[in-house]
Amino acid sequence: MKRVLAVDDTRSMLGMLVECLEDGGHTVFSANDGVEALSALSEHRPEIVITDLNMPNMTGLEFIEAARQRPEGQLVPMLLLTTETAQELKDEARRIHATGWLCKPFDPDQILGLVDQLT
């Protein structure tokens, strides 16, 4: 059982992600944008983060970049879960040390597998 932070501004997406992770027996924290995610990161110390990319207030990329500057965020795997495929965005993700790039729609088994694989 892992502590997972799920971040998405779309309630249905977040709901599905949280449910998938909870079904996998994990403890899930959720946040609706990057700003919330940052405080959840400090508060709950998740072992892995799965975040949407396009969100209001603070995007997934901005969040990861900020999180990597913090001690509690340095060694936590952070996955972007997005429908974006643009190479510039991926390059940006690489630059800010995102752990991985996942395409929506996600496969629940794949997500659960990755949580095991990366933590």
Binding site: T10, S12, M16, N54, P56, T83, F106
Partner: peptide
């Protein structure tokens, strides 16, 4: 952009 993008994301998921 975000509104369109969110529709797309959900639509792809379903």
């Amino acid at each position: 952009f975000r509104a369109v993008h969110s529709v797309k994301g959900g639509a792809a998921a379903f």
